[in-house]
């Protein structure tokens, strides 16, 4: 949990988080330039045009922020990203869960991974309350199986496949004799 700033600091506008997008933009633009420095002009011209304007815009913003900080109107805190503080652990946990979802979907397939993700995600966001666990399990099963039947079986979309999908295919083919 972030430490509570002193009252004087609280009156200043927190602009630290405002630097992230321009920071990423500057870093990426410079990296991009480094990849085209030896390329023919056709590969360079548009990127140099756009990139130079972007760098100039970022510079103007940075100067503005620096002046506000120097005048004592703003500080470099990251408050907009980490408030409300109570949600931050949930948000980070959900982010980790999402990373896990992408990591495991390649092996477990869409249906199983989605079921697990929905179930754990909903329980996490509900604060692991007991009273709605059954609803969450049923909802997760219905949504993941429903999604599979709609997108994969009915509309033949390419979704990641795993044991459930293989089993379903085997049952389907034994039933149809295909």
């Amino acid at each position: 949990m972030p430490a509570e700033p002193p009252s004087e600091e609280r009156q200043k506008t927190p602009v630290g988080a405002d630097l992230l997008i321009p920071g990423a933009a500057i870093a990426f633009t410079l990296y991009y330039f480094s990849t085209i420095i030896d390329s023919p002009w056709t590969a360079q011209v548009s990127a140099f045009f756009v990139g130079t304007i972007l760098l100039a815009l970022c510079l103007i913003l940075l100067v503005g922020i620096a002046r506000r900080v120097a005048r004592g109107e703003a500080n470099l805190r990251f408050d907009p990203l980490i408030t409300p503080a109570a949600v931050v652990p949930k948000r980070l946990a959900l982010f980790g869960l999402t990373l896990g979802y992408i990591f495991f979907i390649d092996w477990l397939g869409f249906t199983t991974t989605t079921f697990l993700f929905l179930m754990v995600g909903m329980m996490l966001l509900s604060g692991w309350q007991r009273n709605n666990k059954r609803l969450i399990v049923i909802l997760s099963a219905v949504l993941s199986i429903g999604g599979y039947l709609l997108f994969v079986v009915a509309f033949e979309r390419r979704f990641p496949e795993g044991p459930f999908e293989d089993l379903f295919k085997a049952i389907l083919s034994s039933l149809t004799g295909a």
Binding site: F117, L118, M122
Partner: peptide
Amino acid sequence: YIAPLIISFTLV
């Protein structure tokens, strides 16, 4: 219920 649903179905 909405947030995990959005994440899983849009990522796929």
